[in-house]
Computed example of a mutant assay.
Amino acid sequence: MTQQIDSDGRLRHLLTLDGLPRQTLCHLLDRAGQIRDAAMGRINRRQVLAGSSVCTLFFEPSTRTRSSFQVAAQRLGADVLNFDASTSSTRKGETARDTLKNLEAMGVRCFIVRHSDNGAVHDLAAVAGEGTTLINAGDGRSAHPTQGLLDALTLRQAKGADFSCLKILMVGDVRHSRVARSDLHALRTLGAGEIRVCGPASLLPEDDTLAGCVVGDDFEQMLQGVDAVMMLRLQRERMEEGLISSLEDYHRDYGLTAERLRLAARDAVVLHPGPVNRGVEITDEVADGPQSLILRQVSNGVAIRMAVLETLMT
């Protein structure tokens, strides 16, 4: 079996959506839908993980993901330890592995890990003790599986469970985006009818990440008739690296405006993983408009992360 699924077919870690069985992925989506009231604090489920300890082991900054996991764990009744690498012994040279093993020795059995290095969470999972579970909260450019799940859940709520009839457009910096990779894994597993990817060549990957996708750089052409538009955050350092000429030029060519959105299907929806660079990837009118599901994604993030924690820890 894979590193994240044990010999009994049980999910032990959540490291990536790549290769995750459709049945497992759909179970997580179904469970998140069932417990959404609890995720919003309307139903008490604090007995589920009472007495368990969860650590958010973040070696990179985060707002939405870290806060969402913390809320999810607390609403299931777990004790949450927030690890901040900037104030920890990692500044004294302690390795991520030693940090993990020391926290394991304190009785922590679930680690939610964000790291800047590709594959870092897989490496930690390989040395984790029996009964310890790891959740990848974003590693390098590799994967952000719970973001892929919450985006899939948001789309399913808006468009139904049959993805085979959907045309979905992803726009922006796919090359450097772990969110894009996990979204693509989820969309393929769920059988999306057509996946389009649009962006400047400098921000598109040169490997097989986009296999099976319709790829182009003409945003308005790619928007024609799509059912969902998934905008990606433009990391501003790409301008410093010379991969784009300016933020203004990027917005001119790839910014989603109300006028451009009218080229999509009449009932098209808009997603964005955040943080949103308003006036760069998307205008205020679209981000705050009736077709935007951005805040729905945020609330779904709590439900998905509750479903993942519950599945892994019970």
Rank of each mutant, 00 (worst) to 15 (best):
D84L: 00
A50L: 13
R75A: 04
D79Y: 13
T99G: 02
D98M: 03
V108E: 04
A85W: 15
A105N: 09
N44I: 08
A126V: 01
D98V: 00
G51M: 11
L76K: 07
L100D: 07
A128F: 01
C55Q: 09
A125R: 02
T56S: 13
F83G: 03
T65P: 10
S52E: 15
D117M: 14
A128T: 03
L81T: 13
V54N: 06
G51C: 10
T65F: 05
S67V: 14
N118D: 15
N102M: 09
T95M: 03
F111A: 04
L124H: 06
R75E: 09
E104R: 01
D123P: 00
G93H: 04
M106R: 10
C110F: 09
G129C: 00
R42E: 14
T132P: 02
G51F: 11
R75M: 06
S68A: 11
R91H: 01
A50R: 15
A78L: 07
G131L: 00
G51R: 13
V48Y: 06
L124T: 05
L103A: 07
G129W: 00
D98T: 06
V48G: 03
G129E: 06
D98I: 01
D84Q: 07
R97N: 06
G77I: 11
V48M: 10
F111N: 03
V113C: 11
L49G: 10
S86I: 01
R64G: 04
V54C: 05
A73I: 02
R109H: 14
H122T: 11
S89W: 00
R46F: 00
A125M: 02
L81F: 13
L124Q: 02
A85M: 06
R91P: 01
N118S: 13
L49E: 10
A50V: 12
R75T: 04
L76E: 07
G129M: 00
I112C: 13
A128E: 01
V54R: 03
E60P: 08
H122E: 14
C110I: 04
I112E: 09
T56C: 09
F111P: 04
T56V: 06
A120G: 13
A105E: 07
T63R: 10
H115R: 05
F83M: 04
G119W: 09
R64Y: 02
V113I: 15
V71T: 15
S62I: 02
D98E: 15
A85L: 01
T56G: 06
